[in-house]
């Protein structure tokens, strides 16, 4: 790299070697160490960079900020699937727990003896199928 090339690159890419394209940076760094004038070239180019930096930001008005914030998306109910899923799971748990708790409080309708009486009530009954005509079966 010669001085003319270095000047051209500084004019194009500015005074910071880190902003120069990768392809030129190593050669430029070598030239910078070798030529005492190279630092001045970069310094000159940096003066324009500094001025350009003053146009990097613009202040927005409070009105603009308000207008932008009015566009903030409202969260959809089902935007997060976990919320309805958790609600359903909680309802299920509460329902089952409530069922068990309620069941424990209600007295058993029949004693064991009563149950046995019901169980025995149909003993001894036998169906008589002999009179049925099975021919169409």
């Amino acid at each position: 790299m010669d001085r003319k090339r270095f000047e051209d690159l500084a004019e194009t890419w500015g005074g910071e070697l880190s902003r120069w394209p990768d392809a030129f940076r190593a050669d430029a760094a070598t030239f910078l160490r070798a030529d005492p004038a190279a630092a001045d070239i970069l310094s000159d180019a940096s003066e324009l960079d500094d001025l350009l930096e003053t146009a990097r930001h613009a202040d927005g008005s409070e009105l603009l900020a308000h207008r932008i914030m009015r566009s903030f998306p409202k969260p959809a109910f089902d935007a997060d699937w976990r919320r309805p899923a958790m609600a359903a799971a909680a309802a299920l748990v509460i329902g089952v727990a409530g069922g068990f708790a309620g069941g424990a409080l209600v007295p058993a309708p029949f004693s064991d003896e009563t149950s046995l009486e019901y169980a025995d009530a149909f003993d001894g009954l036998e169906e008589d199928w002999s009179a049925l005509d099975w021919s169409d079966a």
């Binding site: 990097r56 613009a58 900020a65 932008i68 914030m69």
Partner: peptide, 13 residues
């Protein structure tokens, strides 16, 4: 709003 306040100046420019 925090994101807007952080970057509105640059975006607007």
């Amino acid at each position: 709003r925090e994101l807007m306040e952080r970057s509105l100046g640059q975006v607007l420019a």
